[in-house]
């Protein structure tokens, strides 16, 4: 049973088709990389998988449980099992690094935010948060305001927050897009560790083909809202990956947009 599965997912915005039947499965313990040109639908797919966006047709399964169409507390319970890492980090700049990591547990403790506020959180949670920070190499920054960290460090805080969530799946939408190559590799290394050591199913969208070979256990190419290739089923040569970004792939998107 895969950690995360999309079955024929369809999504349109205002009558404009963005995802047209995406099938995708993300295995536990492995890193699956999602490629695709600007506008091919990567972020939309990721938002559908994390429950931040509703799908129009198809199914989403998280660890053997169907999660699309859930509402209210069922939706919240399913979100808890999928940790999300964003391109813009989305950590809270005005509070401490430590508090940002504690926030990861917000969905799984009683009393929500009150249960994770640094002065009130039980010792067990505080220790766990310190352990997560140590894993991303930022234990010494615990007390700093999060906004004072560099982009690469902030993204590592976001990964520590994801670890704190004790999810089964981690989804990262272009987590290295605004990082320098060195900081980007540090983040990718951490995501691999999360897959290998914690057995999480990891899905990462990227634009850097250079990172694919080194980090991808499996690579899925998205083209105009459809899966163009999936290396679980076929070995994909480099030029096929590059073809995702050619004019005709982009032209096809706009053609189908207007259809």
């Amino acid at each position: 049973m895969p950690g995360l599965e999309a079955r024929s997912v369809h999504k349109r915005f205002d009558g404009r088709v963005v995802l047209q039947g995406v099938d995708l499965s993300v295995d536990r313990g492995l890193v699956t990389i999602l490629l695709g040109a600007n506008g091919s639908g990567k972020s939309t797919l990721i938002r559908c998988l994390t429950g931040l966006e509703r799908i129009d047709a198809g199914e989403v399964w998280v660890a053997g449980e169907r999660t699309d169409g859930l509402r209210g507390s069922d939706l919240r319970r399913s979100r808890r099992r999928v940790a999300v890492v964003f391109q813009q980090f989305n950590i809270i700049g005005n509070v401490s690094v430590f508090q940002n990591v504690l926030n990861g547990a917000m969905g799984r403790v009683p009393f929500g935010v009150l249960g994770v506020l640094a002065p009130l959180a039980p010792g067990r949670l505080r220790e766990k948060a310190m352990y997560c920070l140590a894993r991303v190499g930022l234990a010494d920054r615990a007390d700093h305001p999060a906004r004072t960290l560099s982009g690469g460090q902030q993204q590592r805080v976001a990964i520590a927050r994801a670890l704190m969530q004790e999810a089964e799946v981690v989804i990262a939408d272009e987590p290295v897009a605004s990082l320098d190559p060195e900081a980007g590799r540090a983040v990718m290394d951490l995501l691999v560790t999360v897959a290998r050591e914690d057995g999480m199913a990891v899905l990462v969208s990227l634009h850097q083909l250079g990172l694919v070979e080194q980090y991808g256990d499996r690579t899925v190419g998205l083209k105009a809202g459809r899966v163009d290739f999936d290396t679980r089923f076929e070995a994909v040569p480099r030029d096929r990956m590059e073809a995702l970004y050619l004019e005709d792939a982009v032209a096809q998107t706009s053609l189908e947009d207007s259809a």
Binding site: L52, A83, V84, F86, G104, V113, R161
Partner: peptide, 17 residues
């Protein structure tokens, strides 16, 4: 959104973010 995607409720998101 980041806090909502940890499964936090509305009020927690408001107070936390």
């Amino acid at each position: 959104e980041a806090l909502a995607s940890t499964g936090a409720g509305r009020l927690s998101v408001v107070m936390g973010a």
